[in-house]
Amino acid sequence: MILATGNTCRRGAGFHHGAVLFSFPPPFCRTAAWWLLLLPAAAAEPGLTSVWQDIAESRSHLALVQLDRLADQNDRGAQLARAAAMLDDQPVTDTGLREAEALLVAVAGGTDELAAQATYLQTRLYQMHFAQPDFPKAAELLRALAARLPQSHWAQLGLVKLGLLQLYALPEPSGPAARLAVTEALLARITEKSLQRDLHLQLGLAGVFWKQPLAGVLEHLLAADRIGGVAGQASEDLIAQIAELSFRDGQDAQARQYYERYLREYPTSGRCFTVRVRLQMLDERAAAAKGARP
């Protein structure tokens, strides 16, 4: 109700059209709504779901206001929500992030899903949020999380993040083959299919980057495709890539299958012209092979 008032004022529609003759300017309305929100008696205590909803919609400042009104400030769920909101409450500073980390460490003490999520967010501070990332520290925390709560979703997601660090960022192991090998080993510990797919995809892309044999690269890309559900543009790229790398590796039947699938699924793409040319080349290869046969 109060938020609706705030939105109405923020839109200021009435002012634009001269329909509202006597009213307060939008900044006043917003401030008023803010203070009304803070009044303990004005509304019921918010549930954590509504707080997380605000955080999910990038309204961390509003989530923090709601958290201030909670009766139990020491509730672990509320502490976790506060820490998460602090990561996105502008301006974000390293000092603020350290305060959030203290909250996360406090929540991470248990053995439940909250603890796993808090530990995961702590690893992300070192990997992504502090002005100066500390990849080895992030990797150390991720390994500890996976060892402590291996079946937690956050530990599973953390294994994908660990894989990315091993592929590109950690100093050890240093050689491409070793980087790929230690990351491939993580796959056996990931039980969630969608996360397996994401790591397979990254292993395939890294394999190309590190100039690995195409057969091995294709295994990962095909595995990602088999699991399915690759998000966004990557799904189109994946089919083109499997087709083209198969073509280069001499796996003609597989190349044809994926080129044809590309034409079916992405008929408006600018790459279709090239795909058709490739299919003609496959026809020529097949004809040549037939002609050469005794």
Binding site: W52, A84, M128, H129
Partner: peptide, 17 residues
């Protein structure tokens, strides 16, 4: 990427709910 961590954490909680 950094703000997405926060959204992922929030959606994770909504999944739990």
């Amino acid at each position: 990427l950094a703000p997405r961590d926060v959204r992922i954490a929030a959606i994770g909680e909504l999944v739990r709910a």
